[in-house]
Computed example of a mutant assay.
Amino acid sequence: MRRVSLALICGSLLVLTACGGGAGNNTGGEGPPPAPMGVTAAAGSATTVHVMWNAVSGDVKVAGYEVYRGATRVERVPGDEHMLDVTRLTPSTAYVFTVRALDADGNPGPPSEPVRATTPIEVAADRTPPTRPGRPHGRAVASRAAQLDWSASTDARGVVSYDIYQGGSKIHSVGGGQTATVVTGLRPGTAYTFTVRARDAADNLSPASAAVRLTTAPGADDGHGTAPTEFRVSCHRADGAYYLDLSWLPPRTDGVITEYRIDLDGRQATSLVWGGTPPSGRATYSFYVGRDTGVAYRVRIRAKLPDGTWGGFSAERTVTTGSAEGGDAGTRK
């Protein structure tokens, strides 16, 4: 049967897509950078909020980012940083944050979608820090990521957040109910030392956890640990045309996965960018592949990680249009 041209495989039942490249990126090499995606904000204490966003990638070089609290610019950070602790806030107050990327000439792009965070109530006369996080453990996830976990700290009035340090520098923060994180953007074949500290609403910091030492794998690899999992593909027919139905679990990261690349037969077919809030659990997506019956496709998917790098490919599935089973016909690693 005639195979459908990859150039024609564009379509979306759920989100905006683009063919053959990173949707949502500036592709002309001119003009301001696009709006940052995957922006999140979470209270770190009664007077701080931790803001994170995904690295902007594309033809426009990003020289920095500006973080806004409402209409007020809070701070500018370099282009290789994708987080900021906004301090000196008022307890028990709701805030709105946006982020803008700056090009090499300092021209700002459009603002991100706004995100909201509310600081907790201030605890009076609390000078007792949380207990030290216990039993920290870590492992390298291929060459560019590491997974860390620890046991929860205790505090008389509750732990609001955990700060993750690389050497002496704070690199990340997660909510007080979270005891694991995935750090991306690491260098291959490099030794790292991580520690964790707990923070309460009064901004008291616990002693640092025991150090976690690990070394990332050398050289490039398939990034298996950062690949989508439980990837499934089936096929359905509507109005005489065939559509591939994909579902998967996003890779584990603390940031938000907003972009995916979908390959057919080992070549990029389309990019998928979530137009709204991406699902935190199983994601689904369908797209048109043509009208011919009996055409077999090998399908795989990978995610763009919050640090702007691509994660590993999922397992590869094979599906045939018009097949009796209408589902996965095989798996290739």
Score class of each variant (00 low, 15 high):
156 A>T: 11
316 E>R: 13
248 W>N: 05
17 T>S: 13
12 S>A: 14
289 V>S: 08
324 A>P: 01
21 G>I: 12
274 W>S: 09
175 G>F: 01
97 F>Y: 15
144 R>L: 11
186 L>N: 00
228 P>H: 02
227 A>G: 00
293 T>H: 04
218 P>G: 08
80 D>L: 10
73 R>P: 01
149 D>H: 07
175 G>Q: 09
135 R>K: 15
74 V>G: 05
139 R>N: 03
34 P>W: 01
2 R>S: 02
211 A>I: 05
257 I>R: 00
56 V>L: 05
301 I>R: 05
92 S>Y: 06
196 V>K: 03
312 G>N: 02
140 A>R: 01
4 V>L: 13
83 M>S: 14
68 Y>F: 15
192 Y>W: 05
164 I>T: 04
306 P>Q: 07
13 L>P: 00
240 G>P: 01
298 R>Q: 14
131 T>H: 04
161 S>H: 01
119 T>M: 07
250 P>V: 03
205 L>C: 06
61 K>L: 15
206 S>E: 05
98 T>D: 06
4 V>C: 11
201 A>P: 00
100 R>F: 02
106 G>V: 04
77 V>T: 11
85 D>A: 15
312 G>D: 03
94 A>F: 04
273 V>F: 06
266 G>F: 10
293 T>M: 03
86 V>K: 08
217 A>Y: 02
52 M>W: 00
311 G>T: 03
57 S>P: 00
115 V>E: 06
108 P>D: 05
286 S>T: 13
266 G>K: 08
